[in-house]
């Protein structure tokens, strides 16, 4: 089985996001970019399936501007066999990403597509579900456990009510939650090895997909600030403060 892994490049989760003074977006110049944390989990899961002999090949895919090659090399260093860089001029929206991934699926015929449950920049949480719909295949979102047995996957999902288990026929789309696994660290020799692994570049337009501005982003603003509160010295002070606010 071949596994296709979504591997988006995003602003690192430790960066303190600043909205540009003119509200046209957030400051991304000079900030650290990293693989989306959920996508590292997706890649880790794919690698484990390969190590168990369930998958033969792991392919990482990013739809990103031309300067994202080192990002894809990163995925190769972590252990992917191949990388596909779908080159876009700017960021693409989830429906565009889903349409592009579908074109790739038609070419690559994977048995499983592993994506993150959400990209931590747009926080959209859409691409996997959209891809599964367009592909007319099952989806198992927010996975915290994945077991594959032949042509069926059993997936435990983190839902508001607890843990839900479903069974899906493959091929299918699975999106990862944080507790699915802990991604491995990349070792120096693997970075060297990654340099000679295949990295294919493919302009988005070659896939016949037009980037659509389905949900147009306008003005950005910082979130409303909460006023700094009071510090109390002891439990009595805390109880007083709560009483003053009518909370106890």
């Amino acid at each position: 089985m071949k596994i296709l892994v979504g591997y988006k490049r995003v602003v690192d989760f430790n960066v303190r996001i600043q909205v540009k003074p003119d509200g046209s977006g957030v400051v991304t110049d000079g900030v650290k970019l990293s693989p989306n944390p959920f996508d590292e989990i997706a890649l880790e899961e794919a690698l484990r399936l390969r190590e168990k002999g369930i998958a033969e090949e792991v392919v990482v895919v990013a739809i990103a501007p031309a300067d994202a090659q080192p990002h894809l090399r990163n995925g190769l260093a972590m252990g992917a066999n191949r990388a596909i860089h779908i080159v876009s001029d700017g960021p693409v929206q989830p429906l565009t990403a889903a349409r592009a991934l579908l074109k790739l699926i038609e070419k690559e015929q994977p048995g499983l597509v592993l994506l993150g449950k959400q990209a931590i920049d747009d926080d959209a949480n859409q691409t996997g579900q959209m891809l599964a719909a367009l592909w007319q295949r099952p989806q198992a979102t927010f996975a915290s456990e994945l077991a594959i047995d032949g042509q069926v996957a059993r997936v435990t999902r983190e839902v508001d009510a607890g843990l839900e288990t479903i069974e899906i026929d493959l091929p299918a789309v699975v999106t990862t939650d944080l507790r699915l696994n802990e991604p491995r660290f990349i070792k120096l020799p693997d970075i060297m090895k990654a340099r000679s692994k295949p990295l294919e570049t493919l302009p988005l337009s070659d896939l016949g997909v037009e980037p659509g501005d389905f949900i147009a982003a306008g003005q950005h603003e910082p979130p409303p600030a909460r006023a700094r509160g009071v510090m109390v010295d002891d439990v009595a002070g805390l109880v007083d403060a709560l009483k003053q606010r009518g909370l106890v």
Binding site: D123, Q219, P222, P223
Partner: peptide, 10 residues
């Protein structure tokens, strides 16, 4: 977006 660190009008 960005974990609530920015609010965008769409």
């Amino acid at each position: 977006i960005y974990a609530g660190n920015a609010i965008v009008t769409v």
